[in-house]
Amino acid sequence: MLVDRSHFGWGLATLVALGIASVIYGVAAYRSPDGVLGGSPVGLTFGLLGSALMLYAGAFSWKKRLPRWTWLGSARTWMAGHIWLGLLSGPLILFHCGFRWGGMLEQATLAVFFVVYISGIVGLALQQFLPRVLSNVVPAQAIYEQIPAACEALCKKADALVAARCGTLAVPEWHEPKDAASYQPERALVEFYLHEVRGRLRWSDRGAGHYGQLRLKLLEVKHAMPDDLQPVVDQLLDIVSERQQLQWQSTIHGWLHGWLLLHVPVSVLLLVLAAAHAVASVWY
């Protein structure tokens, strides 16, 4: 959870700052026949403050790359500032432009700003609630980058489990049993494992839904197995269940961090456009 009770001070300070800015903007807009203009002293002040907050929010990603620079403040503080000051930058930028779109560069800058702003809010909402969902749905979480390695380890464990009980993991040739006496449950288990289970234990980007079907099949196989083989099938069920959790974790992790694929590049674009706007405004 990103926003918790420890953010109360940040939120309150943000609201107070927003209130003060709103009053200043309202007075300035009332006094000026054309409203607040970006080039007026009040508008320039709002623009400078908004740009500073945007730069601070952008510096958060650089701060994360410098974990040893503790004198800059903790990551938690930076994250809180990124959230609340980033939220405050929106109204300040709107006050700067007087709720007008401006020219082509300003329109592009504002459009990009809104994309960054809204994607940030969406990301905040996702980061606020999805971790709780993740911890509920995936108790056996792994380090995200090591999920393929964890899958590989699960696969090796399942291999060892089946080989230990059935003797070999060699791929047998399939022969339809002619009678009940010729039916070998170990062979059937190995064959089922190799054809249906083993490939799905390895890492891939497929969805987590088909693991439920696999578990149903394993339950059917379990009932077809003699009593001495059923514990093996039960352990296979647990391994498949953990693999399914890892797949869920990968998917939820995509939701948790996928919005950054939009938020971060557009933030970079915003900084470039804002810098161009500032230079053009000061020069002309």
Binding site: V137, V138, P139, E145, Q146, A149, A153, L261
Partner: peptide, 29 residues
């Protein structure tokens, strides 16, 4: 849901050569 990991040992569960597993989201970002 309870955590019933099949491979509780970190050394068995993960590849300690972490460089082989870069974060693809970060790379695309």
């Amino acid at each position: 849901m309870t955590d019933a990991r099949q491979i509780p040992a970190i050394a068995e569960r993960y590849d300690l050569d972490w460089r082989r597993y870069p974060n693809r989201w970060r790379r695309w970002r």
